[in-house]
Simulated scan of single mutants.
Amino acid sequence: MTLKVCNPTRRHILKGLGAATLLSPLCTLPAWGAQSHRLYVDGLSFLPNDINDVKASKLDAFIADVSAIETIEQSDGTKNYKRTYQACINSIKQAVNSVNANPDVYLQGLTGTDIEKARSQQRTAVYFQIQGADCVEADGISVNGNLPIWPQLDSLHQHGLRVLQLTHHYGNRFAGGALDNNGNQGLNKPLTDAGRELIAELNQRNILIDVSHSSEQTALDTAKASQSPIVLSHGAARHFVNHARCSSDEVIRAIGDSGGVFGVFMMSFWLTNNPTPTIEDYIDQLEYIAKVGGVDCVAIANDFPLRGQENLIALNNNNSEGVKEYLDWWHSLQSKNVLGFDVEPKHVVIPEFNHIDRMSRIDDALKKARFKSSDRDRFMGGNWQRVLKKVLV
Rank of each mutant, 00 (worst) to 15 (best):
I356F: 12
N172Y: 06
R196C: 02
V264D: 03
S75W: 06
S335T: 09
I115S: 07
L44S: 04
D104Q: 15
K15E: 09
L220N: 06
M359N: 10
Y106S: 12
R83W: 01
L29I: 03
V54F: 01
K336P: 02
E287V: 05
T71A: 12
V349A: 08
A219R: 02
D180I: 05
D284A: 15
L59V: 05
R205Q: 13
F174V: 06
N383W: 08
A20D: 15
C88F: 01
N144R: 12
K346N: 13
N383I: 11
V387I: 13
P229T: 03
W384V: 04
N184R: 13
R370M: 05
K389T: 12
N102L: 05
S57F: 01
P48W: 15
R173L: 07
F379G: 00
N182D: 12
G77W: 07
T28L: 08
G33E: 13
P229A: 12
N354T: 04
E310L: 13
N100K: 14
T21W: 10
K372P: 00
G382N: 00
N7F: 11
V338T: 14
N100I: 00
T21M: 10
L366R: 11
S75P: 05
N100V: 01
P103C: 08
C88Q: 00
A95K: 03
E310I: 11
Q108P: 09
W329P: 01
Q334G: 05
Q74N: 12
F341W: 05
R238F: 09
M359Q: 13
G381P: 02
Q122M: 07
G18Y: 03
Q74M: 14
D210A: 00
K346A: 13
Q129M: 13
A64C: 09
K324H: 00
E73Y: 04
L26W: 05
K117E: 13
